[in-house]
Design a protein around this nucleic acid. Structure first.
Length: 584
DNA sequence: GCCGTTTTCGGCCCGACTGTTTTCAGTCG
């Protein structure tokens, strides 16, 4: 059993205990242990083997015993007992925003509710509203929540699917009958949320490949098994489709199955205008007369040939959304998209001083290992008490620690910063004279998100009008497939950021990817700089910036648009200029 | 459940918001 699996079991125990009404601190002990183990650098089975579990903070005797049993037998009787005592559908109810263990327990005790469906019915027929302590509004909120959950069903995060997809593609690549393989579909286009994994392969004969695909490890159910298309369900409910074509058809099929649908439609229209016909099977010269069949195939060896035949520059998969890419490709004006290797550092990172799980030294070491020229530390500000936000004294102490670290030299310069809460009225969480002592400030909203769009927009704009604010963190607060963005007028904020010279963050946490890629083209046109940040709470998360790069590419961003592609000397100047511009 | 120069019990994160009821419990971040 690996760390992630152990963590999952502990997490599940925590949830079940909460529903049982256990001591909240006991539940938290399980959650904390799960989080610690999930992000542990060492292999958990090794720690068990060497009897070193007790060295981990937050894992006492009881947890040591349970984890040992779990690792040694891949099984935990305690979990079985817990599960048996609670209806299987109850934990699902906790996913509804606004519902915690107490309410879920009340529904079960008072109304014998034990599934989403039963809860939905109870809301609709008025039983929830009649319950003591509940009312019409609660019932409606629950119904809205259930609706939201339903809309998220069958969708998956890009980050949850991409590794699995690459694994399957590489497995297929090893098959002797396979000629070419690629991940296609929305994954290839770097969409933040996807419905399924699409893989395309070419081969002379597909029979054996399809057999191997349908019986591979991790395929829990075969949905269809044919010679050109097969589908399986993977663990976790993700569907994976494999299409196999002749190698001569591969470029056309790859373009077709990469999509998007909207891009394909526009491409086919373009083909028609050039007396051609385009489909998943090929690009054809249209015959003079309609009844002369498909016409002659225009041979293409790869996707670039197809674009070339249509008089277009090669369009990178990320841009294929029919949002102007075809027009730009016609004029050879496509952006030269930013690349991972061009990133020189990043700014939004946490340490154990607040809610990070890696120490200052661990974070810095990882930044150096990644080859960064600079790295910014920005722990939470004092209002964020639930994550042990920094008092002024602790903040200044951290600044001192960083300055001292930098005097040692080293390849990676550490910038002093803070992730400063934007308070309800748009003011910041520290006085200006404190903020002035930092190299930079990330301003973010973390609380009181139930405002109107107007109020929230004004609040954020007021915050970025403070000359000490360098960048705006996770603009909309969304958590993909979990929580919608709070209402905010993105266009107005982009305009304000352009005016004040404030950088906008592209938060690379796989759940956030905020600001959304759909807005970056506008931001870029208005001259707003993007800063790609990992929002790392553990050193292993600094690498999230790679995902951020994918999204930046999807947002048409080039090297010049992403400020943290600047080398150290220039970024240092940019940080100073930012303040100067505002103080002018 | 964990932890301990408060050392074997008692504290562990707390302020704001929501929906309810009319003073507060539950949830969230």
């Amino acid at each position: 059993m690996d760390n992630a699996e152990v963590a999952e079991v502990l997490q599940e125990i925590g949830t079940l205990l909460e529903i049982q009404g256990e001591n909240p601190f006991k539940c938290r002990a399980y959650y904390n242990a799960a989080r610690t183990i999930e992000t542990l650098a060492e292999n958990i089975s090794r720690l068990v083997e060497e009897k070193r579990l007790g060295e981990i903070e937050g894992i006492g005797e009881a947890l040591q015993t349970k984890i040992t049993t779990l690792v040694e037998t891949s099984h935990l009787p305690y979990l079985d007992e817990l599960k048996a005592s609670i209806p299987a559908g109850l934990p699902d109810l906790l996913k509804i925003p606004g519902l915690g263990p107490k309410k879920v327990k009340a529904f079960h005790l008072e109304l014998k509710i034990s599934s989403l469906e039963e809860l939905e019915n109870a809301c609709k027929d008025g039983r929830i509203a009649q319950l003591k302590g509940f009312g019409e509004k609660t019932a409606q909120n629950i119904l809205d929540g259930i609706e939201q959950i339903k809309s998220f069903q069958g969708q998956h995060l890009y980050s949850d699917a991409i590794d699995r997809a690459e694994e399957i593609a590489s497995l297929l690549r090893q098959h002797p009958d396979v000629i070419r393989v690629s991940v296609a579909g929305s994954l290839r286009r770097s969409k933040e949320v996807i419905k399924d994994i699409d893989i395309l392969a070419s081969a002379k004969d597909s029979t054996d490949i399809m057999n191997a695909f349908c019986s591979m490890d991790g395929a829990t159910k075969v949905l269809s098994h044919g010679t050109t298309k097969s589908s399986v369900l993977l663990e976790g409910g993700l569907q994976c489709d494999l299409r196999v074509v002749q190698d001569s058809q591969y470029p056309y099929a790859l373009h077709h199955f990469t999509g998007s649908k909207e891009h394909n439609v526009a491409m086919r229209q373009l083909a028609i205008s050039k007396r051609m016909k385009m489909s998943e099977w090929g690009l054809f010269q249209r015959p003079a007369l309609e009844d002369e069949g498909d016409g002659n195939l225009i041979p293409c060896t790869d996707e670039a040939d197809i674009f070339d035949q249509l008089g277009l520059e090669f369009i990178p998969p990320e841009l294929r959304e029919n949002l102007g890419e075809i027009e730009a490709a016609k004029e050879h004006h496509l952006p030269k998209l930013v690349e991972w290797s061009q990133l020189r550092g990043c700014f939004h990172n946490h340490t154990t001083e607040t809610d990070g799980r890696s120490t200052f030294d661990e974070m810095v070491q990882c930044a150096e290992d990644l080859g960064f020229e600079y790295f910014g530390l920005s722990d939470h500000s004092r209002s964020s008490t639930w994550v042990n936000g920094l008092s002024i004294e602790r903040l200044l102490k951290q600044v001192e620690q960083i300055r001292k670290h930098n005097t040692k030299g080293g390849d990676c310069h550490i910038f002093t910063g803070v992730e400063c809460d934007i308070l309800k009225d748009g003011s910041l969480d520290y006085p200006d004279e404190i903020l002035a002592q930092l190299d930079y400030v990330v301003a973010s909203v973390h609380s009181i998100t139930g405002m109107t769009e107007d109020e929230m927009t004004r609040r954020i704009i007021r915050a970025i009008e403070n000359p000490h604010v360098t960048m705006l963190g996770h603009m909309t607060g969304r958590l993909l497939l979990k929580r919608d963005a709070y209402p905010v007028n993105v266009q107005k904020i982009i305009t304000a950021a352009a005016k004040t010279g404030t950088w906008i963050e592209l938060n690379s946490n796989p759940l956030r990817l905020d600001m959304d890629w759909r807005h970056w083209k506008t931001a870029k046109e208005k001259g707003v700089k993007c800063v790609i940040n990992p929002d790392a709470h553990h050193y292993s998360q600094i690498g999230y910036v790679r995902l951020g790069i994918n999204i930046a590419r999807k947002g048409w961003l080039e090297k010049k648009d992403v400020i943290n592609t600047l080398p150290f000397v220039e970024i240092k100047k940019a940080l100073l200029d930012k303040r100067k511009k505002m103080n002018r």
